[in-house]
């Protein structure tokens, strides 16, 4: 048996530059084209900015981040609850504590998210090409409500039993009772710990990426001539206009 040399491979096509700007290069693969398109829409300095425009220095701009922090606490406490099970969180002191952390994180999540929603509504935050940002925010709100509802069903007490048997008629009337059976604890458990958290996480992640792409929405009273809204300003708020 002899060693054979590998046949010479064709070298991978190199990008053909049409100018001095690397972004003008012509790429021959979908991965290369996708990379250029993504980096053009969301360059690294927009994804992880060093600074924010001055108008962000207001308390009304902190509630979105408050909701994200609450979500982190919800996910962490939820993992612990899921791994230890109902007997643990009903009967042990630590279980009660983690269960309460989970509940109060949800309370804070909804409170901060709704105040964030009010703030963005009254500053018409869908301005300047931010329509999808607004829609994903509303999507996160709606999916979170369904997730919280399944959480109430998982208390495994008389309260959750009552909620399930009040809710089943409405869901049956809506025609989805066969696929979303609130009286089926196992099914609701899977919805609550896998499908819905993934959905909330994905929608929130998309929402945050869109905020980074378009920049934080400027206040209504910001002047068009404001230097922070001009193209090239930090956050590139001026790119999308007002």
């Amino acid at each position: 048996m002899s060693l054979r040399e590998n046949p010479p491979r064709e070298s991978a096509p190199t990008p053909v530059s049409t100018g001095s700007n690397p972004e003008d290069a012509v790429y021959h693969t979908w991965t290369g084209r996708a990379r250029v398109a993504l980096l053009r829409r969301l360059p690294a300095d927009k994804l992880l900015p060093e600074d924010q425009p001055g108008y962000v220095a207001s308390w009304i701009y902190v509630f979105g981040m408050g909701a994200i922090v609450s979500l982190v606490f919800i996910l962490a406490s939820g993992v612990i609850l899921g791994l230890n099970g109902p007997a643990w969180y009903h009967l042990s002191d630590l279980g009660h504590f983690v269960n309460s952390v989970h509940l109060w994180s949800v309370e804070l999540f909804f409170m901060t998210m709704v105040v964030h929603l009010w703030g963005k509504y009254w500053m018409a935050a869908w301005r300047g090409g931010r329509t999808l940002t607004w829609i994903t925010g509303m999507g996160a709100f709606l999916v979170s409500i369904v997730t919280a509802f399944t959480g109430y069903l998982l208390q495994t007490n008389f309260d959750s039993q009552w909620i399930a048997f009040e809710g089943k008629d409405a869901l049956n009337a809506a025609g989805i009772g066969a696929w979303f059976n609130v009286a089926n604890l196992g099914q609701i458990f899977m919805f609550h710990i896998i499908l819905l958290p993934l959905a909330v996480g994905a929608v929130v992640a998309l929402h945050v990426v869109l905020v980074r792409m378009h920049g934080v929405v400027p206040p209504l009273e910001a002047a068009d001539t404001d230097a922070q809204l001009q193209p090239g300003a930090q956050g590139d708020a001026g790119e999308a206009g007002r």
């Binding site: 600074d51 924010q52 425009p53 001055g54 962000v56 220095a57 207001s58 308390w59 009304i60 902190v62 509630f63 309370e107 409170m111 709704v114 105040v115 009010w118 703030g119 922070q228 300003a233 930090q234």
Partner: peptide, 25 residues
């Protein structure tokens, strides 16, 4: 109580001055 706290937070966020950190652009 939760609804009243949310309204209070919203009003406070509009009127309370934000602590000035390092100089922003």
């Amino acid at each position: 109580i939760v609804i009243l706290v949310m309204i209070l937070l919203f009003v406070l966020a509009l009127f309370l001055p934000f602590p000035s950190g390092r100089k922003r652009k």
